[in-house]
Design a protein around this nucleic acid. Structure first.
Lengths: 353, 353
DNA sequence: TCGCGTGATTTCAACGTTGAAACCCGGGTC
DNA sequence: GACCCGGGTTTCAACGTTGAAATCACGCGA
């Protein structure tokens, strides 16, 4: 006897018990062909008796679909991606799909593998949240598997994408500070190499600048706080609480300290939460002296000290759009690429009332 | 032409180009049979030319394995489960497995479906973190698919489980407070219905009591704070920051307020973080007046105000043990059930130095 | 009474892969 | 020179399911 798996019952086993052909059992299950009430009952009894379950692999082989989507994110352990995964699993379930989760750790090679459809054909479509690879690499690597990119790092028009507008959202967040009378604003989370050019953080910086310009303001270069270069060893990437803490701490240690800074826009909530700690421990009142806003609306942000004002992307909608997009591609691989936007809103809290 | 999928190349297509039989292509890919260097090169060139990928469904159908595990958790959006998912994906990847994530929302019906192996045969094994169903239901529902239960809710000896010892870990956490001179201790997170009897929170309460007893202390019943009954509508379950905040706020609103409470042990970090907020806003100094410990060591806990002392379960090890267990079952379905323990450690921070 | 249509059921083949076994061929061995 | 050995390669069948088409039973109108 071969070393095969538990060898559960098959259509044939059910058919034998019910006294019909196995095709009829299939008909009962799929409901695609009419079956008399009597046989249906017999078949269903047999199914229950054997606890029969269809073998997805066989179905998939036959029909060419797995009803599986792959979600590829850098780190499931970051709140943003955890929320995203939650939203995607929920959205996929609503349309009868399961989700395989892949973590890239922001590793370019792994992101390329995701873009190209992995080594093995498994899922019907891929949702990729990239943070290391750029447009050309992605376009070069992509394979036949339907692909939808999440987020604004990738800008190529020839891929389906679902995004939340980083520029206008961050402009709004910055505008919120300006409207509250803040005049000396800083930005936490600029990226070292200008080469990337399309990272979400760059777009958020752009939104920051747009808002300042609109208000006739300008940012002191010392208030543009750059995060450390990407570090593979860090388990959570560089937009972390620790990094936010460190960068603001460094600013405070500067000869002029804050230098009049009265508002800080952060590229994400984790950086903001780190910044809050550094400010608090540095004796700087928030929002009295400095107002802080983040981006993500992580669940913990409402419980930060003080509670953090943030941009809340509608991840539920993002996920629904993404799933819909990828399924459209599954149905029609030649469907022209679209870029869709998910909404966001500004959630004001005590850190920037 | 039928409406099948993109119809990528198959072994036969590669074979045609390379001028060999398709079985030889298979040999090149699997490496299970010797292939001469010359043909190997030709085949590999053909593979590259066509960008051939093996079709997992066909392989799975043939060999009876999918190299897929299903992880079933209540909420991916809770830090604990997000960390757990991260750990499981990592551990599975190390042994060549992908992970399908299923969210039950703590719904009993969905947990039962997970325990029984889902409606369709897809993954080789299931890792289930249950929070609603009990021993009997689980044993009754379980099907043929190898199952490993994560966590201590389920106690049945006849299922494989991987746990972190809630009793001793919480006893340690409580002991830490006692050692620091705290004498009037409370517990946040008792559960309403005593019927469940095996929920992790109950075990943590037991650990709390054990430690008190060992120190010759006793808890004032008013200091055993019960969380609200499970609420399906709540997106995050009842062990939430909001709940912790509400329960402690309620205690403070009591005629005697804290009533001498000088240490609070929380069933998890989210409750503790909520508690910290309520205490802070109630003007209660932590740890000056009340020391607080949590359980989970959520990433955000190090940045809480004050940073939270917590029990840090070794989720990496938990995941490795769980994956190893389920794969053992896959290889040998009759392998006797085991219960394995993952280690934990106490991480002291400012909330309970 | 015959044929016809429709509902119910079955037969057949195919999806792409791999285990098992057969085959082929050149180089020893006796 | 007959034989065996083993690397290299191929043939064959099967995994469990579903699309397509064939078959069957039966009531009904002509």
């Amino acid at each position: 006897m071969s070393a095969r798996r538990s060898a559960g019952p098959t259509l044939k086993d059910v058919a034998a018990i019910a006294g019909v052909s196995y095709r009829t059992v299939s008909n009962v299950i799929s409901g695609k062909a009419p079956v008399s009430a009597a046989t249906r009952a017999r078949v269903e009894a047999a199914i229950a008796e054997l606890d029969y379950r269809p073998q997805l692999a066989a179905r998939q082989l036959r029909v060419g679909r797995s009803n599986l989507l792959t979600l590829s994110v850098p780190f499931l352990s970051l709140p943003y991606f955890a929320q995203l995964a939650h939203a995607v699993v929920t959205a996929a379930e609503a349309v009868g799909y399961d989700v395989v989760v892949d973590e890239t750790h922001g590793d370019a090679e792994r992101e390329l593998r995701a873009a190209s459809g992995y080594r093995t054909l498994l899922s019907d479509g891929i949702l990729l949240s990239a943070m290391s690879i750029g447009d050309e690499e992605l376009m070069a690597a992509r394979g036949r598997t339907p692909l939808v990119v999440l987020g604004e790092r990738i800008r190529a028009a020839r891929v389906d994408r679902v995004v939340v507008d980083s520029v206008t959202s961050t402009r709004d967040a910055t505008g919120h500070l300006v409207a509250a009378g803040r005049r000396t604003l800083g930005f936490l989370g600029t990226v070292p190499d200008a080469s990337s050019g399309a990272a979400a953080a760059d777009l958020r910086l752009e939104g920051f600048r747009t808002a300042l310009r609109a208000a006739g303001l300008e940012a002191d270069p010392r208030h543009l706080l750059e995060v450390s270069p990407w570090d593979q060893r860090s388990p959570d990437g560089d937009y972390s609480r620790e990094e936010g803490d460190a960068r603001v701490r460094a600013l405070l240690a500067t000869p002029d300290g804050l230098g009049g800074l009265d508002g800080l826009v952060c590229a994400n909530d984790l950086l903001a939460i780190g910044a809050l700690r550094a400010l608090r421990e540095g004796g700087v009142d928030v929002p009295g002296r400095v107002a802080v806003v983040g981006w993500d609306d992580a669940p913990e942000s409402a419980f930060a000290v003080p509670p953090l004002t943030s941009i809340a992307p509608d991840l539920g909608e993002l996920a629904r759009l993404a799933v819909a997009s990828v399924l459209r591609l599954v149905d029609d691989p030649d469907s022209p690429p679209r870029v869709e936007q998910a909404p966001y809103r500004l959630v004001p809290r005590a850190s920037a009332p």
